[in-house]
């Protein structure tokens, strides 16, 4: 964590707190998704209980992709990104700061709400902890992969659907291992370790690719 990154994260959090609650859209979508899923699955408690972790993971991975279209677009349009680049500061640091702040502002509320959502769907209390842990480990993969795609479409307006179209195939791997980890119900399962490896891999690759894309937009 360089001072540049922490400064950027501080700025993003201040901006989010003044934005009139638009940061909460992701978590509201997350809860709404689980509510609708409960209606779709019907009143049978046991049936829903088995599917709860999978649905919570699905809701979280989709909710984390919302509001990504603004992640880089605003800074590209108002010149913040250009100032940062002309200043000689690293774009890798910029994207890392952006990803971490998106993780803090959008994903952390979802993470905190996830045991609640699982409980609402009727999941047994025993899987709540593992749902939370698997989402905590897999979260960076979801956020960094989505953020990387949002850097690709930074110069487009209203690119939300396009981002999901491109990041969708990327979410398959974390989803498979995240839900797998909850179903295995073992804190030391290899699913959880692979999920961690995917997250680490995404944290390394995503800022590099985002930098390449941002440089294209700055040219």
């Amino acid at each position: 964590m360089t001072p540049a990154i922490t400064g950027l994260i501080g700025r993003e959090i201040r901006k989010a707190s003044r934005s009139g609650g638009s940061w909460a859209q992701g978590s509201v979508f997350f809860i709404l998704f689980t509510v609708l899923a409960a209606f779709a699955l019907g009143p049978e408690q046991e049936f829903r209980a088995n599917l709860a972790p999978a649905l919570v993971w699905l809701a979280a991975s989709l909710a984390s992709q919302l509001s990504l279209d603004r992640l880089f677009a605003e800074d590209l349009h108002d010149g913040t990104l250009e100032c940062w680049f002309v200043d000689g500061q690293s774009l890798v640091e910029f994207s890392i700061g952006k990803f971490i702040s998106h993780w803090l502002v959008v994903f952390t509320p979802i993470l905190i709400l996830s045991p609640l959502a699982a409980l609402m769907l009727g999941a047994p209390v025993s899987v709540l902890a593992l749902t939370f842990i698997s989402l905590a480990i897999g979260g960076p993969a979801l956020v960094f992969m989505g953020g990387m795609v949002s850097a690709l479409t930074a110069n487009l307006r209203g690119s939300g659907l396009l981002i999901v179209l491109i990041s969708g195939p990327l979410l398959a791997a974390p989803l498979i291992f995240g839900v797998g980890a909850v179903q295995i119900a073992d804190i030391a399962s290899s699913e959880l370790k692979i999920l961690g490896a995917i997250s680490l891999g995404a944290m390394v690759i995503a800022p590099v690719i985002a930098t390449l894309a941002l440089k294209v937009h700055l040219e």
Partner: peptide, 26 residues
């Protein structure tokens, strides 16, 4: 989709190339 969405010729070329390479890793 991404190729046709980006109007600027150079940017769409390079962004589309990055997209294809991400897919190849994926």
């Amino acid at each position: 989709a991404i190729r046709s969405a980006i109007r600027d010729e150079v940017a769409s070329t390079r962004i589309a190339a990055i997209t294809a390479m991400i897919g190849a890793i994926n």
